[in-house]
């Protein structure tokens, strides 16, 4: 879910009107968007007064996806994206700007 929120999910408003309010226009991640390989690492630290040491883990995996991806992108190509989602267009523009070029605003990338 947070990979989608990192890479493409965004409610787009024009003059207060939502313009992509259906699943034809609003993109959520499909099985094809899932990375080819990923691993979950669980670090167990007992909660002193949780039941049998337990605590909730529902949200933790979701929290840091976006900055981890943005940090990896800077590591790869040296550009920093500061507004989500990190779309191909934003990365391409940042790369062009880094090289001193600008891309036309209305290009249909």
């Amino acid at each position: 879910m947070h990979l989608g929120l990192t890479l493409f999910e965004e409610m787009v408003f024009e003059d207060g009107q939502l313009v992509n309010g259906s699943l034809l226009d609003y993109q959520v991640a499909t099985i094809k968007d899932m990375p080819r390989s990923f691993r979950s690492v669980v670090v167990e630290v007992p909660h002193a007064d949780g039941p049998f040491g337990a605590k909730g883990a529902g949200e933790t995996g979701a929290l840091t996806v976006a900055p981890a991806v943005a940090n990896a992108i800077e590591d790869a190509v040296g550009v920093r994206i500061r507004d989500l989602p990190i779309t191909p267009e934003k990365v391409l523009r940042a790369l062009a700007e880094k090289d001193g070029a600008t891309l036309p605003r209305d290009s249909s990338l």
Binding site: M1, V28, T30, M34
Partner: peptide, 17 residues
């Protein structure tokens, strides 16, 4: 082929793996 075939089904809990 699995990814291609199942890409029309959404799982929002994201249990794709």
């Amino acid at each position: 082929e699995i990814r291609e075939y199942l890409s029309g089904n959404l799982c929002r809990c994201a249990g794709y793996a």
